Amino acid sequence: MDVGTPLGPPGVAHVNTKAIVQLRSVGKTYASGDNQVAALTNVTLDFLPGTFTAVMGPSGSGKSTLLHCAGGLACVDTGEVVVAGTALNGLSENALTRLRRERIGFVFQSFNLVPSLTVWQNVELPIRLAGRRAPQAEVTAVLAGLGLTDRVRHRPDQLSGGQQQRVAIARALVTRPKVLFADEPTGALDSRASRDVLVLLRNMAERSGQTIIMVTHDPAAAAYAGRVVFLGDGRVVGELLDPTPEAVAAHLTQLEQAPC
């Protein structure tokens, strides 16, 4: 995949019509006291349909900022983000909300479950919020795939942390979004549950054509993806295709040992 496709002439955006998510010369800066900290600098990336990409890098490299900007949770300062053919720059908050609800799924380290709702009700919530009736077969299939069939009537406070995380993942997957952004989606799971979730994500990309972008610190988790993009100091500094845990770990070690 081309991570360095140039922009067209001034005033003309380069568009890869095949990409579900495009970042073009994206920059994002945060204020830190009296200083400005560049979280992302000139990031250009494409994410194609049916691909599972892991984003990795040392602490502070810009991984979560990239995810937030690409998913429309944070505005970019420079450059352009396009999701499913829609440029995010300049969209109203209402338009962004509709896009996120209809085209994007999110999974974060915090579960964000509604405590008064059952597992089933939490999972079907995005469909209800979109004004549609939740197909029972879809909800059942997602819950079964994540090992939650026997927990459908439980509420979050009756579940372990790992189970709550699986409910959050099921809720993000049930609408079969065009792109799923996941920030450490297996962080609260044991090794077996983590493996099951990662296999599910990989199968969704390969069999359903969904685009999955996952931030992780774990080389073993990243190896389930077909591509790993590495960030360093807010810039794209490399990538691996068909990664192995050993290759990912070696690349990370090189980044962490690189001089500033």
Rank of each mutant, 00 (worst) to 15 (best):
M1D: 04
L7Y: 09
G11Y: 14
A13D: 02
L23A: 05
L23W: 01
R24E: 06
G27P: 09
G27E: 14
A31V: 15
S32A: 15
D34R: 14
N35I: 13
L40Y: 12
V43R: 00
T53M: 02
G57V: 01
G57F: 00
S59N: 13
G62I: 00
K63E: 07
K63C: 09
L67C: 04
L73G: 09
C75N: 10
T78W: 00
E80S: 05
E80D: 08
A84N: 14
A87M: 06
S92Y: 13
T97H: 11
R100D: 05
R101T: 10
E102W: 13
F106R: 04
V107S: 07
Q109T: 11
L117S: 13
T118N: 08
V123H: 05
A134W: 14
P135T: 10
P135I: 11
Q136W: 10
A141S: 15
G147F: 04
T149G: 12
T149W: 11
R151K: 08
P156L: 06
D157Q: 06
Q158G: 05
G161D: 03
Q164M: 04
R166K: 02
I169Y: 00
V174L: 03
T175V: 07
P177M: 08
V179W: 01
V179Q: 05
L180W: 02
A182G: 01
D183A: 03
A188V: 12
D190C: 03
S191L: 12
S191Q: 15
S194K: 00
V197W: 07
L200N: 00
L201Y: 00
R202W: 00
N203L: 02
E206P: 03
M214P: 04
T216H: 02
H217D: 12
A221W: 10
R227K: 10
V228H: 01
V229A: 04
L231S: 05
D233G: 04
L241Y: 02
P245M: 11
T253P: 09
T253Q: 15
E256P: 03
